[in-house]
């Protein structure tokens, strides 16, 4: 083994301090490689010794406090664990793809624009994930545990919805929470359509998820009397959402317009479905 191949071997080792007998033998007989190896080991330790700026810990405290103060939901049975460890990164990547081109310093920003730009895509991706989890939990069981999280505006709303869902005792309460969340997403869509049209598709998808996969199934779980007492108000809200989204779709850039039209369609379909449920024409 010559010096060059020995050094390549050392560079490829998981740990350059753990060398094989043949490498050790070469090192013992070659002062140059010995010195080189010594430097390599020193570099490794120096890399490990580099410190990073100490955080004030505020964000960590916030997150911890939210998880620690929230009342834990003890499950009635063990939840199913899905088989893929890589599912989260995959989901995150999909969400990220949907909401790409996040922050462009070249775009002149209003204070609102800056706030939203900071939110995208981190807040949106996380919010989308949470909305996905929320919709999933509604489908699985209304009792499924949800949580609280950091203070991004949109994210905060989604997380608050999850907490409220935990605490909701009746189907009507859960519908109230979900409708509020749908309104929040709708409101964000109205605002974002002016500043970040590229991201509107993700928001439209979120809106669809909340309405189609959470709100409507929850409405279906109500009995006939509950439907009549609870749902008319939401029919009205969805009608307003549809009307507003349609109007904005005509005023916004093409990319935002398409997404707003999709939101309008979802709101319309949701409104019709709720109306059928009230009339007993749907199960």
């Amino acid at each position: 083994m010559n010096c060059s191949s020995l050094r390549s071997r050392l560079l490829a080792l998981p740990d350059p301090t753990a060398v094989s007998d043949s490498v050790a033998a070469h090192l013992e007989s070659c002062a140059s490689c010995q010195a080189w190896h010594r430097v390599l080991v020193q570099v490794e330790y120096a890399v490990a010794s580099v410190t990073v700026p100490r955080s004030d810990g505020k964000k960590k405290r916030e997150v911890l406090a939210q998880f620690r103060t929230a009342k834990a939901n003890k499950p009635k049975s063990k939840p199913a664990v899905s088989p893929q460890i890589t599912s989260t990164p995959v989901i995150a990547e999909k969400a990220v793809k949907k909401s790409k081109s996040p922050v462009s310093p070249a775009i002149p920003r209003t204070p609102l624009g800056e706030r939203l730009a900071r939110m995208w895509p981190m807040g949106l991706v996380a919010a989308a994930l949470l909305v996905g989890a929320l919709a999933w939990s509604i489908k699985k069981s209304p009792e499924t545990a949800m949580a609280k999280a950091p203070s991004d505006p949109m994210l905060k709303e989604v997380v608050a919805a999850k907490i409220d869902l935990d605490r909701a005792h009746t189907g009507a309460d859960r519908i109230k929470v979900l409708a509020k969340l749908a309104d929040t997403i709708h409101e964000e869509a109205r605002t974002l359509s002016k500043v970040t049209p590229d991201e509107m598709n993700s928001l439209a998808a979120m809106y669809r998820k909340v309405v189609e996969e959470a709100l409507i199934p929850q409405a279906r779980s109500l009995n006939a009397d509950e439907r009549k007492a609870t749902l008319p108000a939401y029919v009205q809200r969805l009608a307003e959402a549809q009307q507003l989204a349609n109007r904005l779709a005509g005023e916004s850039p093409a990319a935002s317009g398409r997404a707003l039209s999709e939101i309008a369609e979802v709101a319309e379909a949701g409104r019709i479905e709720l109306a059928k449920l009230i009339q007993g024409r749907a199960s």
Partner: peptide, 17 residues
């Protein structure tokens, strides 16, 4: 990003094998 990571992790903890 650290904060974001834990949020995403919590959202997907059910899927962790």
């Amino acid at each position: 990003i650290t904060q974001e990571t834990f949020l995403k992790a919590f959202a997907a903890i059910q899927r962790f094998q």
